[in-house]
Write a protein that binds this DNA or RNA. Structure first.
Lengths: 138, 138
DNA sequence: ACGACCGTCCTATCGGTCTAGGACGGTAGG
DNA sequence: CCTACCGTCCTAGACCGATAGGACGGTCGT
């Protein structure tokens, strides 16, 4: 799972962790019933405080994507993939609309923006292969 | 000028003010030599602290878009429009690329995204008329 | 000269977030 | 049973940005 956390970003580390976990669930990297990394383990890997991971896991539980079992671990719920995908669809569309409006307002040519989309799709198809490998290996 | 500041946003109020002023300069709403709103006036209008406006004005001066004259006011520099346009072009393209990549990764159809661009362009052409009126009136 | 307005600076405080470190009880495998 | 690991909670502190309020000197029209 992608656990890179940028401490200089405007979006707080805990939210970056939430997004990373949701991405992993939506991508099928974490399936329902799978156990998430331990609080201390993920904290060490992402170089953040365990309390920050706790907060992220609590947010994920409130979203219904995961459930924590005391003393055992945090697990992906059956509804996890649906929740993660729905959230990502809504969020990314909203931010994309804002970004598109801002870019158009700044004077960017529509053709340049379309090219950026095509480029993003191309870059995605390359990375998609790796994700599939990781899943089949798990 | 658009001085709406969202206190709940992740981007700090001072940066929102910077963006709003740059937008106004890039749109021609504020021409070189024009005086920006007073620190206290803008603070009252945007419902923020005068110190927050001071910080925004200082950032704008560092960018080279404005210059403050002690006791008189803050004025748009000759290079202001160029600076503002260049900044907006670079910033909006970067955020657009990120948003596009995220949207594609989330599974959005390329056609949906293209439609969002077209829609943004349509919305812009409507608002552009007002901006032109305001400028010709000034 | 005077008064209103201006930008600037200063100190103190508050709120949110992350960090630090320790403690508790539950779970599970040997 | 016992040990290791787990999630959870707590207190305390640091940090950053915005807020609050006051003070200073410069500018400009009258």
């Amino acid at each position: 799972m992608n656990v890179r956390v940028d401490p200089h970003s405007l979006v707080p580390p805990s939210q970056q962790l939430v997004a990373a976990v949701l991405d992993a669930i939506a991508a099928g990297e974490l399936a329902p019933g799978d156990k998430l990394p331990s609080v201390r383990g993920l904290a060490g890997e992402a170089l953040v405080n365990p309390n920050t991971v706790i907060k992220a896991y609590r947010d994920l539980e409130h979203l219904g994507a995961t459930e924590g079992r005391n003393g055992s671990g945090v697990y992906v719920t059956a509804a996890g993939p649906d929740v993660a995908k729905a959230l990502r669809l809504a969020e990314t569309l909203a931010t994309f609309q804002q970004a598109a409006a801002a870019a158009v307002r700044a004077g960017h040519d529509e053709q340049v923006l379309r090219a950026a989309i095509t480029q993003a799709r191309g870059a995605r198809e390359l990375g998609q292969g790796e994700a599939g490998k990781q899943r089949s290996k798990a």
